[in-house]
Write a protein that binds this DNA or RNA. Structure first.
Length: 148
DNA sequence: GCCAACGTTGGC
DNA sequence: GCCAACGTTGGC
């Protein structure tokens, strides 16, 4: 799950404990969050749009999907004038802080042959939420556990 | 249903 | 700030 650290960083999540994953405005990413997640699932917290993008920590899905309030707020950059409370387009889930690990930068992810097929790293991928296979999860977890 | 134009994402 | 890649919009 990608977030710009200027908006919500892993440290912000640690302080807050739980945050709603607001602002997703891509149908595929929304569908992954709505349909492919279950309460208790773990996710990598990825920092994007910053000097050194990469995986900063782990969070846990802790709610069912519910409407993203920012879509109804005209003052929000995530406002969607075509969405209504009766038929909301954008759903989110809450996530809870689990842990921080050694920062695994995008360049390091790209250097690992075992991650060559990871959806996150696919050419042209812009989805802010992508699935992770069990093997990818295990190998990244090992990288995060290494001493820095 | 096609496709050009436009907007956005996100790494660099 | 640039630009490749992709998604969305809207005319036809």
């Amino acid at each position: 799950m990608k977030s710009e650290p200027d908006e919500v960083s892993i440290d912000d999540l640690e302080k807050a404990g739980t945050v709603p994953w607001f602002g997703v405005r891509n149908y595929q990413a929304r569908n992954f969050m709505r349909d492919a997640m279950n309460i208790g699932d773990l996710a990598f917290f990825y920092h994007s749009g910053c000097a050194e993008p990469g995986i900063a920590g782990i969070c846990e899905v802790c709610s069912e999907p519910y409407p993203d309030a920012t879509q109804f707020d005209p003052a929000s950059p995530y406002h969607d004038p075509n969405s209504t409370p009766e038929q909301p387009r954008w759903l989110l889930r809450d996530v809870r802080f689990v842990s921080k690990g050694r920062y695994v930068a995008l360049a390091e992810l790209r250097s690992r042959p075992e991650l060559a097929n990871m959806r996150l790293l696919a050419r042209g991928n812009r989805l802010s939420i992508t699935p992770v296979t069990a093997d990818e999860w295990a190998s990244i977890n090992r990288l995060m556990a290494e001493n820095s």
